[in-house]
Every structure is written in structure tokens, then in C-alpha cells.
Amino acid sequence: MTTLEPSGVAEELRCAITSADPRLSKFSPLRRILTYDDFNSGTHGWTELLGNYNGRGDLSTVDDHMRDFRPPQLSSCTFFDIGTHGAMTGTYALKLATRPYTGHTATAIRRLTMSGRGRLQIEAYFTFKAEAVLDGSVGDQFGDVRWDGNLHPSEAQFGCFTVATDLCGDGGLRYHTVARYLNTTLENKLVHQWVYPTVPEPTPREHLAGKVKLGYGADFTAPNPEDWRPFGEPQELCYNEVPTKVNWHYLRWVIDTATRRNVELQLNDRVMDMSGVPVPPYQERYDSLENLLNFYFSVRTHSTIRNFLFLDSVLISTQW
């Protein structure tokens, strides 16, 4: 655990104040809270990711696989059967919603810069769902799940969600850290496995240089399924049976920007050591990105059913 232990009066006081604040007491922030986002008061800078475009603002020059990541929504988590579920805190959560197109990804990105180097942590309370299907087009069987009164085919209709960074500094050295929860394979079989990519994300500059050309619906983080590796043991989350019940999960992910390494990932009661998970940098240097500090969440559907990732609240904190 990297959660700071009290060491001295100042640290004890900081912990006491944090613990007494109902907004913060459910988090374990590092020393400096950089951002705290409760989506009852807007989107807090979490916005849609879009690929780059040319000097004329011609959006047809945006890479096909990065032109339609969909705008995040302020959602009351309302469903056809029970009405408004609401968020963990208040009424609203930030919702990422894919199109009903196999392979489609929705994103929300937050753009910051680094004022130091060291440990960097993101915490979030989130939940994930596939859209309810009411027209009978799916039936009681999907992937390897058959409705038995407990398991529901909706669970096999959710593909994956990802938390990741885009970081750059020290003379244009750019890299990503990535953690993905693969709920199902591309064949809609439940796997419940954490995975990471072994290659850096394809960039618009690489496309412009003719090195890569990806189609709509390609996995923008790492398009080749063979470039993903598992880490940790399979972990079952609380999908809660049907597409209209939401249970909020805790995520805490630590990286180190001084060493450009992963540290650890906590999901509910499980902490996974990520220090051995490699962080491949780009071989070429990047301009215009000094001290870049971006976090993004994404959700990708492996079926023709919309997938949703709901964020109740997000906190980013740093050691520096």
C-alpha cells in the first residue's frame, strides 16, 4: 500500500482533516490533491478525446479510429425499470457511452501538466454497464452466459474499460501507462482479467508519417489483441446481474513519473503490484508536450450493444 501513514503531527493532522470530510474520506490521497471531481457540479474538465487535425481545421484529416469517441454525459443513472438510480454521491455521474457498434470506444480525458516528478495517483468510484436490450434481439443467451435467474446475458455484452495516462517530459520523452479490465474476450466470453499493452499507443504523427492506418472501431490504445498481456489474477467485479443495477467500485492506481514506471493498482479489496508491468516509451521525441499529464478513462464494446462507464467521482493526487 502506498497510502501515506501518519508520520508526525502535520501528517496526522492532514489525515484527520481528510477523514473528517465526507467528500474526501472515501479516498486515500497522496500529499497534494491536484483535482477532485464530483460530477454533481459539471464535467470538471473531463472531455472527449479527439485525434489531431490539419492546419485548416479540416476534421476529415482526423484518424478514422480517433474521430468519434463521443462526448461524455452528465447522467442521473436512469433506467427503464426503476427510473433514477442516481450516483454514489448525489444525483449525477459522468457517463461514457459507446455507439452500438462492435469495437467502438468512448473516452473521457483530463488534461493537466506536471509541476514535479514522483508518485502520481488517480482514484475513482465507478460502475460499468451494457445497455439494456428490450427488443428481444438478444434473448437469454449471449456469449457464454445464459440467463439463470442470477447471471444475465448483459454481463457478457460489456467489453472492457481502461484507465490510462499520456505523459511527456524531460525533452519530449513520451509514454503511456495503461490498465484495462477485460470483462470479455472479443468473442464475448467472460474473462475478468486485467491486461496491459506491450506497445505504445499509435499517434496521429505516426499516421501522417505513413506508419499506421487504423479503421473506425480499432482499439486506439493498442490495436493488435496480441499486444496485450495479463497481469494479476482474474478478478470478478460486482456487475450485479442485470443491466439496470449499479454498484459503485473503488479504483486506486499509482504510477511514478520520476522513474516512468507503474506502481500498483487497487480495485476494491485487491491490490495488484504493477511494478513489473513495462512502460514502453515512444522511440521518437515529441514537441509541444512538455510536462504533459493526461489521464483518460475509456470503455469499449465488443458487441453491437452500447457500453457505459459511469464515474461518480475522481481524485488525482501527487507526491510532489
Binding site: L59, R67, R70, P71, S75, T91, K95
Partner: peptide
Amino acid sequence: LERDTTFTTDFVTEPYEAAW
């Protein structure tokens, strides 16, 4: 909701929540 999209047939935009 649509950024640079060419349509040749009838369409609907993706659902967007705006209850707030």
C-alpha cells in the same frame, strides 16, 4: 453529437442525457 459526418439517408443521433 456529429462532428464531420456525411449522411445520405435518414438518421437519428446517439442518445444524450440532459436531465440536469
